[in-house]
Structure formats: C-alpha cells, structure tokens
Amino acid sequence: MEFQVPVIDITAYVTTGDVHERRIVARRIDEAARTVGFMQIVGHGVPQTVIDGLAAAIDGFFALAPEVKQGYRTPPEINRGYSPPKSESLSLSLGVESANRMNDFFEAFNVGAAVSDYPGLELPLADYPENLWPREVPEFRALVEAYFREAGRVARTLTTAFADALELPAGYFERYTDHSLDVLRMNNYALPPGEVELDGELTGMGAHTDYGIVTVLWADQAPGLQVLGADGHWHDVRPAPDALLVNLGDLTARWTNERWLSTLHRVQPPVVDGTIERRRSAAYFHDGNIDAVIETLPSCLGDGSRYAPVTVAEHIRAKLAGSRALQPNTKAEREAARMRSARSPY
C-alpha cells in the first residue's frame, strides 16, 4: 500500500459546523492518528498574510551575521532563543546515539509561553522563561506573535476534535492545557556553500518523536522531511497546497495507549542537483500544562497500560535534556526501539 499523509479539512471545527460534519472530520482524524500519526490540515483559517509574515521574520533573523545570532543563545536548559548548527542532537531525545555522532546541522530560534502570560499561577521560570526578541529585526516580534496566536488556536481546535474522535466529553483536554507549555521553533537548514561535504552521513535533523500533545508545522516546499511508515521505511513528505502538517506527540501516544501514534520523523539534507537547497519550517509544539499528570485514558486501557503515569514536566525535561544538553534520555524505550528497527532507504 502506498504511503500517504491524509489531507483533512477541519473547516467544520473552525466555523460553526454541525454535529454530522464534525463527526466526519473526527473519524478522519482518528483514522489518520491510528495509521500514520501525521495528517495535513486545510481549512485551518490561518490567513496567508500571517504565514507570509512568519516567513519574513524567519528570513530576517537567520540572515543576521553568526556573531549576532550567537548573542541570542541560551543555556541548554532554557528552551528559548538561538540554537546554532551542530549544537543539538534530536536522536538523543530518544536515548539513541546517531550513527556518525554528528549533531544536526539545522539552526533554530525558539519562543514560547512565558511566566508573564499567566500572572498569579507562580509557574516555574525554567519551564516558562521570558522570550528573547532580536533587536536587529524590529518587525520580528509582531510577526512571530501573530503566527504564534494562530498556531495556538489551530492546536486547540485540534484537541477539541481529538476529544470527539476519542469519544470523550466536550472540552476534555482543556483542564490539561489552560497554561500549556507551548513553544514555536523556527528552523533554518541552509548552509554556506562548501561548509559541508555531502558524504551520505549529513543529518538535517535526527530521527525523533515530538514530545507533547500535538505539533502544528508550517514548512516550505523544499525536500527533506521524512516520516517512518508502518512498513519500517522512511517516506518523503511535502505539504499540500495551503496545508499545515500536523503530527501527534508522545503524550498523546501515552494517553491513548498507542491507539494513536507518536510517529518518528527526521529531516534529511535538502539536496537538489548535488547542492543544499534552503529549507525553512516552524513547529508549534502544544505540550500541555507543566503540572498535568498524563495517564492512559480509561477508554484506551484494554488489557493494561503500556505506560506509567508521568507529569508533563518529567517527560518534557527528559526529552530536552537529550536534544539540547546531549544527555541521552533513558525513559523512551518504546520509541527508541522503533527507531532502531527503522530501515533505509525506502
């Protein structure tokens, strides 16, 4: 069977769709979540002007001189600001050493939910740090915040649909996401010509599963993104016109006892005619409240849970310690086993 990431129109959840229309969408989401773990979302309602603004902000920041970008670097435990090429290794979020021990060559800039967004809750500053905004790109903050709001709306629209798809009470996930640890990671895969020899071992972003509940990804049309299929092979994925790519994270796999998949994916070098082509993306990670306890939903228990209960804090910190601090995560055995069994090429 040919590998496909289904395209799902969520207009019924963005507007005032009737119960029948929403039920159809929820069924399609359930099918995609059970079989692929990825989907392409259209009808999301994000204005093209907002997406264009995000792309302009990404271009503006990553065009800055390396020494300027380095000024926005933060310690590994602070998931904000700039990450230069080869400073992270996503496979270590699963506790898996990369074959050539070469760190991922992407560079990134992170913004996210901050303590100041939730006055009165006394949230930990280490998990909800204040954002850094590059002074050299004056329009960056407004453009990025506009997209952050839209992506957050899409993520919450999806969790509304998830509750329907899993036959849970309306608004079920709201108690887990009312101060959600959300992060927007803007990625750039460009490298100056001649900096890296293409020897077949270059990694754009190592194989990993996403950490939280759901990820909303904007990406341009450059090649590189690959998803691990049920056949154990890696498959190329490019977004459909006007679509946002959506995939499920580990916390959703835990909630559903793996009825829904937290699918492994990676980014290979976007090579076109022997040269590296520029590739940009922006991933909005909707990760849930830091103090929320994630345990298997009663409707998904079956003969027993594959996972012990875990707080969002415990899970996210272990994952970030792997990718950012390069400390292999020892608590991702099931995901690591899937990665080790993956076969390549296709």
Score class of each variant (00 low, 15 high):
Phe3His: 05
Gln4Ser: 12
Val5Asp: 03
Thr15Asp: 13
Gly17Trp: 03
Gly17Pro: 04
Asp18Asn: 12
Glu21Arg: 09
Arg28Cys: 07
Ile29Lys: 12
Val36Cys: 09
Ile41Trp: 03
Val42His: 07
Gly43Cys: 01
Gly45Leu: 02
Val50Lys: 04
Ile51Pro: 10
Leu54Thr: 02
Ala55Phe: 14
Glu67Ser: 11
Lys69Leu: 08
Glu77Trp: 14
Gly81Asn: 06
Ser83Thr: 13
Pro85Lys: 07
Pro85Cys: 12
Ser89Ala: 14
Gly95Ser: 06
Asn103Phe: 07
Phe109Ile: 01
Phe109Met: 01
Val111His: 07
Val111Ile: 06
Gly112Cys: 03
Ala114Cys: 11
Ala114Glu: 03
Val115Pro: 07
Leu121Ile: 05
Glu122Ser: 15
Ala126Leu: 12
Pro129Gly: 04
Glu130Asp: 08
Asn131Ser: 03
Glu139Gln: 11
Tyr147Ile: 02
Arg149Asn: 07
Ala151Tyr: 00
Ala161Ser: 12
Leu166Trp: 02
Glu167Ala: 14
Ala170Tyr: 10
Tyr172His: 08
Tyr172Cys: 04
Glu174Ala: 13
Arg175Met: 07
Tyr176Gly: 05
Tyr176Gln: 05
Asp178Met: 06
Val183Ala: 03
Asn188Thr: 08
Ala190Thr: 13
Ala190Lys: 11
Leu191Ala: 15
Pro193Asn: 05
Glu195Trp: 14
Glu195Pro: 13
Glu195Asp: 14
Glu195Ser: 15
Asp199Thr: 08
Ala207Trp: 06
His208Cys: 07
His208Trp: 06
Asp210His: 06
Ile213Asp: 01
Ala219Pro: 11
Val227Ile: 11
Leu228Gln: 10
Ala230Asp: 14
Asp231Ser: 08
Asp242Arg: 15
Ala243Cys: 04
Val246Asn: 00
Thr252Arg: 12
Thr252Ala: 11
Thr252Glu: 04
Arg254Phe: 10
Trp255Lys: 04
Trp255Arg: 04
Thr256Tyr: 11
Glu258Tyr: 12
Arg259Asn: 12
Ser262His: 10
Ser262Asp: 04
Thr263Trp: 15
Leu264Arg: 09
Val267His: 06
Asp273Cys: 07
Asp273Gly: 09
Asp273Ile: 02
Glu277Cys: 14
Arg280Gly: 10
Ser281Leu: 10
Ala283Lys: 02
Ala283His: 05
Tyr284Asp: 00
Asp291Cys: 01
Thr296Pro: 12
Cys300Glu: 03
Arg306Trp: 11
Ala308Ser: 09
Val310Trp: 09
Val312Pro: 07
Val312Cys: 09
Arg317Phe: 01
Ala321Glu: 13
Ala321Asn: 14
Gln327Trp: 05
Pro328Glu: 01
Asn329Arg: 00
Asn329Gly: 02
Met339Leu: 14
Pro345Arg: 14
